[in-house]
């Protein structure tokens, strides 16, 4: 016990040789700087195992990753909006191999269904009401009623109002737009030169009639 921790005195309780240097030998030299961040490596890596199998699998791997990135499963960061339309968009859009993906709702919990709101995009695309996948909340219904009332008054302004609504809903984030990309079944992607108001897909037809016949809707 007496010798413990006393260092290299004359009487040490343990075998000094076990320290790695014997008595009388010099201590390892003084260290004047921190050890190098990347000391020289004694052993270099062994070269790769080359074979046709590996080459093919490499190609498969890269192809698979490439496909995954182009697939609808790959979500771009939402801020990557195109500020101006570029010529290359045409090429890149064409590269969308798998296009849209529709999840099969028979296999997924209902809560994961997106809340699709009736709105339009800012680009000149005719808005089409989404079919059975629309789950309108109460808010939406009242808004729709407002719209329909106004339609009586001014049909021409419809588009602007819808755009307004669309603007309001933009708070939800541009997420919605991407959602539409995926979940809209009948989205017409062509850019048209036609003014929207000339385009009559007949859906407003029924509404007007209703109003005319029945008066205000509750």
């Amino acid at each position: 016990m007496a010798g413990r921790g006393r260092g290299r005195g004359k009487n040490v309780s343990f075998n000094v040789e076990a320290l790695g240097f014997g008595r009388g030998e010099a201590l390892p030299g003084p260290i004047s700087q921190p050890p190098p961040l990347f000391p020289t490596a004694d052993f270099k890596p062994v070269p790769f195992q080359q074979s046709e199998e590996y080459d093919y699998m490499l190609a498969l791997k890269q192809e698979f990753l490439g496909n995954m990135r182009k697939s609808p499963f790959f979500l771009q960061a939402s801020h990557k909006r195109k500020d101006i339309e570029r010529y290359s968009d045409k090429y890149q859009a064409a590269a969308e191999v798998n296009g849209k993906w529709k999840p099969d709702w028979r296999r997924l919990p209902a809560e994961l269904k997106p809340r699709v709101r009736k709105k339009t995009k800012s680009s000149i695309k005719p808005s089409v009401k989404v079919k059975s996948k629309v789950k309108l909340s109460v808010e939406d219904v009242s808004k729709t009623l407002e719209e329909l009332e106004k339609k009586e008054v001014d049909q021409g302004d419809e588009e602007e109002e819808e755009e307004e609504e669309g603007g309001k809903k933009k708070e939800e984030g541009e997420v919605e737009e991407e959602e539409d990309e995926i979940y809209d079944e009948e989205d017409i992607e062509e850019e048209t030169d036609y003014i929207l108001s000339y385009f009559d897909n007949g859906e407003e037809y029924g509404n007007d009639d209703d109003d005319a016949d029945e008066g205000p809707v509750y």
């Binding site: 296999r107 997924l108 994961l112 984030g173 959602e179």
Partner: peptide, 12 residues
């Protein structure tokens, strides 16, 4: 909404 989409993808 985004999380919903992500979960759908991951479940798929």
């Amino acid at each position: 909404e985004q999380v919903k989409k992500i979960l759908c993808i991951l479940i798929q």
